[in-house]
């Protein structure tokens, strides 16, 4: 498998109420082994997946939000978050947990994985993919 394709995982649903966010993350983790060009998009209610301070003890469902912080270890380093979706939900970047990766091409400097983009930039990103997987 020499060909590298651009894969975009589109996350538009909030966590816990339905399983989509968790099972999307599971695909991303497995998919990382295939060494494709992977990006994640968070828009609409998908931005809620990245919020800080999730505590799921009371609902008895595993809190998988720390897993996003581990994505860098899997070389998944492009998490695009839509500004308009944040705005509509009264959120700012400060409401999201910090997700970072170590850039091997830059002396392992720690860099943010979350990139906030506007809606037009999100549309450009979507239009630049080979495979779009929606959750």
């Amino acid at each position: 498998m020499s060909e590298i394709k651009k894969f975009l995982y589109v996350n538009r649903k909030a966590p816990y109420g339905t399983i989509y966010a968790l099972e999307s993350l599971e695909v991303v983790l497995i998919g990382a082994a295939f060494e494709q060009d992977v990006s994640l998009a968070f828009l609409d209610d998908g931005v809620f997946q990245l919020t800080k301070g999730q505590s799921t003890d009371g609902i008895g469902i595993k809190n998988f939000s720390p897993t996003y912080r581990a994505l860098g270890d899997y070389e998944v380093t492009k998490l695009y978050v839509e500004q308009e979706s944040l705005d509509e939900r009264g959120l700012t970047l400060d409401d999201l947990q910090a997700v970072v990766y170590e850039d091997e091409d830059d002396d392992w400097e720690e860099k943010p994985s979350i990139r906030v983009v506007n809606r037009a930039e999100m549309a450009d990103l979507m239009a630049d993919q080979d495979v779009v997987l929606s959750f």
């Binding site: 538009r12 828009l43 609409d44 809606r119 999100m122 549309a123 979507m126 239009a127 779009v132």
Partner: peptide, 29 residues
Amino acid sequence: MSTLHTVNKSPFATGSLASCLAHCKDGDA
């Protein structure tokens, strides 16, 4: 280069159609 978008939800139940239309580009379907 263009994209086919599919929408399977009523626009009166979810924002999927609105979000799709806000992200599709000229020449898409």
